[in-house]
Design a protein around this nucleic acid. Structure first.
Length: 584
RNA sequence: GCGGCGGUCGUCUAGCCUGGACUAGGACGCCGGCCCCCCAAGCCGGAGAUCCCGGGUUCAAAUCCCGGCCGCCGCACCA
């Protein structure tokens, strides 16, 4: 099968079996939006559950959060998105063509307008008499083309809001609250799973680039002085996980063939600037492998400085090789440092720091200068006295002392106070800790892209029929329950009722089970193979005699016979054992 | 956004060049019935197409022309 065929075949299967399809089709469709049908919904949910296992439930320090999709404008002012996520554009008033304003001005006038306000760009356009290169028409005033979706909060004259392009801001805004909820301890990871929206200029490539999609994201807050120690205490399985990495240095030297490094080596060789970031890359590698992607089809690709987001000090994309598009990003790992917390603290005036306690309180000698009221009154006189004292109280005694040290007097409210106006004291202060901004690393996964690569790698054919070899724990259904025959004869009716009972029992025990009696047994096996159901229970003639059923394995078509009572236990061990090699 | 190519039952497709016999044909799938002891069996019957949308040319348009939408590929963009 050629590579393009594979993509084609997966898309065809997706449409035919109700996994996904383009949205709004009856109205002609809108690019960048997809609907997910019954099977798509189930597989997506399975992937979310599996991600949650790896990134939340198996972790000691991660808690979950859910925040709004619609955010007030100030959030993305503070985050820097409104500034950095926008391109200036100008529209020709006669032919209507739209140009990137900065590119146009640079090209035609040689002026770099990076960082210019819109009206400043207009002035440059006017000054250099720039006209539409296509038709020679005049340009309308420059506008910002923002890749954030905007909306109004509240009816009538609401205030401007944006749909979030990532979850991160929800975690940063709630950092102080979450820290209190978990008992004021670092490290702290906050996970969020949900929809985001980005108003892409030209989305294409099916599920690869959507305007609305699901992100599974962790913002992980930690103390950079402690991370080496904290990470080294983590699971050996993660630390010795081998990753295929292409570093920025390698890329600059023209090398794109990955090197194999363990998480431990990434940290020790300082390939990754944060130990915790390396740790999450390790967890992410195990997670992607557990989805059925072979190790050699995964790589971590470091972004060069100009390719990185404005908030990131280092970014690795985790990429999976696909048949049509080559390497595509399924996850991003960004070292966001203290950027976001500091920005939100600045804009909101909230305290978003962590109080880092010292192991032993430090005793510090602090020198301070306290104004002597009588001395001050003598120097400045009765009329100026109240104003001077008011101004003095705005300055801390420590500040005053330092100023006295450097220039031996204090200038305040237009008068000069000599040293004699102050009493110098030496105070012993016990300092129990300090306020720090935690550093943040962020692993962030695109669910729909994962669905795409999962389907590509699960897709295979047997005897001209489609077989989805999905790992059992992400299959849409764990098991199908089938009566061998379902006609009108009493013994067939018996098979139907036994099968329906088994189905009900399995659903009750938490299995995703599918009941099907339509068509011949062979046809039904083919149907469930096609959507990746790993096991099938068949109720046959022997069931009526001795209460046993067969379990059929999707990948081999082999069957084994078990008692009805032992089905749940058997299924459980099959499903958990397939996952256990990935757990840490 | 620019350029190239494409769009016919659920799916794949015939027809388009050379306008009319197209009430748009076929296969697979789907639905109902019969039959059936394990891997898309068989037989009988049935439903299913705004020929992507809008406009134009023509006595006549799935077919020719123009515009739009959507998709694919390349370029640009991708915090």
């Amino acid at each position: 099968m050629t590579s393009n065929d594979l993509h084609e075949k997966v898309s065809e299967l997706a449409r035919r079996r109700g996994i996904y399809w383009p949205s709004f089709e009856i109205y002609g469709g809108v690019a960048g939006f997809y609907d997910f049908g019954p099977i798509g919904v189930l597989v997506k949910r399975s992937i979310v559950d599996l991600w949650s296992k790896f990134f939340i439930y198996l972790q000691e320090n991660i808690v979950e959060l859910e925040t709004p999709i619609i955010n007030p404008r100030v959030v993305f002012k503070a985050s820097g998105h409104e500034e950095h996520f926008t391109d200036p554009v100008v529209e020709c008033s006669s032919c209507g063509r739209i140009f990137r304003a900065d590119h146009l001005v640079k090209e035609l006038a040689g002026v770099d307008v990076e960082g210019f306000k819109l009206h400043e760009i207009d002035e440059v356009i006017k000054k250099h008499n720039i006209k539409c290169p296509d038709c020679g028409g005049e340009f309308k005033p420059a506008m910002s083309a923002l890749l954030l979706f905007s909306t109004e909060i509240g009816p009538y004259k609401g205030s401007l809001g944006y749909l979030r392009p990532e979850h991160a801001q929800g975690m940063f805004i709630n950092f102080a609250k979450m820290l209190r909820i978990v008992g004021e301890r670092l490290p702290l990871g906050i996970a969020q799973i949900g929809k985001v929206a980005r108003n892409e200029i030209s989305p294409r490539q099916a599920l690869i680039r959507l305007r609305e999609f699901t992100i599974m994201e962790v913002e992980f807050f930690f103390d950079p002085e402690k991370e080496r120690e904290e990470v080294s205490a983590n699971s050996e399985k993660v630390l010795s996980e081998k990753l295929r990495v292409v570093t920025g240095d390698m890329r600059l030297r023209g090398i794109e063939e990955p090197v194999e490094l363990t998480v431990r080596e990434l940290i020790e060789n300082k390939v990754v600037k944060s130990a915790w970031l390396a740790y999450w890359m390790g967890v992410g590698n195990i997670f992607i492998r557990s989805l059925g992607i072979p190790r050699e089809k995964i790589r971590f690709f470091e972004k060069l400085p100009h390719e990185r987001a404005h908030y990131s000090a280092q970014t690795f994309d985790q990429e999976v090789y696909t048949s049509r598009y080559g390497w595509i990003e399924v996850a991003g790992y960004a070292y966001r440092t203290t950027y976001d917390l500091e920005r939100h603290a600045e804009y909101s005036k909230a305290d978003l720091t962590y109080f880092k306690k010292y192991e032993i309180p430090v005793v510090k000698t602090v020198e301070a200068a306290y104004p002597d009221p009588e001395a001050v009154r003598k120097v400045v006189g009765e009329s100026k006295y109240p104003e001077v004292m008011r101004e003095l109280s705005k300055r801390s005694p420590e500040e005053l002392y330092k100023e006295l040290q450097s220039r031996s007097n204090i200038e305040i409210a237009g008068v000069i106070l000599p040293r004699e106006c102050f009493t110098i004291k030496r105070n012993e202060v016990k300092v129990h800790g300090e306020k720090i901004y935690p550093h943040v690393v962020e692993p962030s996964f695109g669910l729909e892209r994962l669905l795409h690569v999962v389907l590509e790698y699960a897709y295979s054919e047997r005897d001209g029929k489609v077989l989805l070899r999905l790992p059992p724990y992400i299959a849409p259904y764990h098991v199908a329950v089938l009566p061998l025959l379902a006609g009108k004869k009493p013994e067939y009716q018996k098979m139907v009722s036994i099968a329906k009972n088994i189905h009900r029992e399995l659903v009750g025990r938490g299995f995703r089970a599918l009941y099907d009696d339509e068509g011949s047994i062979g046809r039904r096996y083919a149907r469930i193979d096609e959507i990746g159901v790993p096991y099938a229970i068949t109720v046959d003639h022997q069931t009526l005699v001795d209460g046993t059923v067969t379990i059929r394995y999707r990948d081999t078509t082999q069957q084994e016979r078990v008692k009805i009572d032992s089905i749940p236990e058997r299924l459980n061990s099959l499903i958990t054992s397939s996952l256990s090699t990935y757990l840490f």
